[in-house]
Nucleic acid binder design. Sequence first.
DNA 1: CGCATAATTAACACATTCGTTAAGTGAGGA
DNA 2: TCCTCACTTAACGAATGTGTTAATTATGCG
Lengths: 113, 113
Amino acid sequence: MADDALSGTFAALADPTRRAMLARLVEGEATVTELAAPHDISLPAISRHLKVLEHAGLISRGRDARWRPCRLEPAALADADAWMEPYRRFFGSRLARLDAQLRASASPTAKEQ
Amino acid sequence: MADDALSGTFAALADPTRRAMLARLVEGEATVTELAAPHDISLPAISRHLKVLEHAGLISRGRDARWRPCRLEPAALADADAWMEPYRRFFGSRLARLDAQLRASASPTAKEQ
DNA sequence: CGCATAATTAACACATTCGTTAAGTGAGGA
DNA sequence: TCCTCACTTAACGAATGTGTTAATTATGCG
């Protein structure tokens, strides 16, 4: 993996187990054991997936007695999302169309904020 | 790399050289040599990066005499973009806010299309 | 044909990734 | 104190990824 932030983020997303973990975390904080439950791999493997997600800035981990609650960190995903921006006009997503719509209806001198 | 489509897409995006190639292709078709030009790696390495992008469905390649013109294929990126959808409310992107705005102004019985 | 150009395939080295099992850490509870 | 629970670290093996150089394929041209 290249060591820039975006590469780390995309590399972290390139694994279904890790994406499933993020999907779980969208519902709220979870402990390591809770995140491990749906998966058929060992706890050390889970632990390393979490380390990858944490290193990529996709999650952060706290401490609650014996538990390490994990939560979603939005910034890294936001960066990945921002990277997509120039491509949206190509795949004509609903959001891209929305965006175009907004630009069209906005004041022509309006600055992006 | 896991062999599902999304994993392949994200794995392909997890390399700066390949992202640079996509960025170039957003400007239009390009040959292998043109795509290679800005990078300081051998042509075989470039060729394999292109194979990764093609296998991920991010580009397709035609034939024009000796040249293999590459072009962006939107579908794979669109899928990656769609995957992000549930997370947008977390990182409060402009597009997410736009989306919320549209939903609010749409008829409450309107179905997603 | 014979040669140059565009690109790919082959063969190899090296690093990283992802899984395993076994051992270690640190906080709570009997 | 000793045990258990939640989790991490260590050590290892198999597979994959990325780069190299050398050889190969395929097309166009004199």
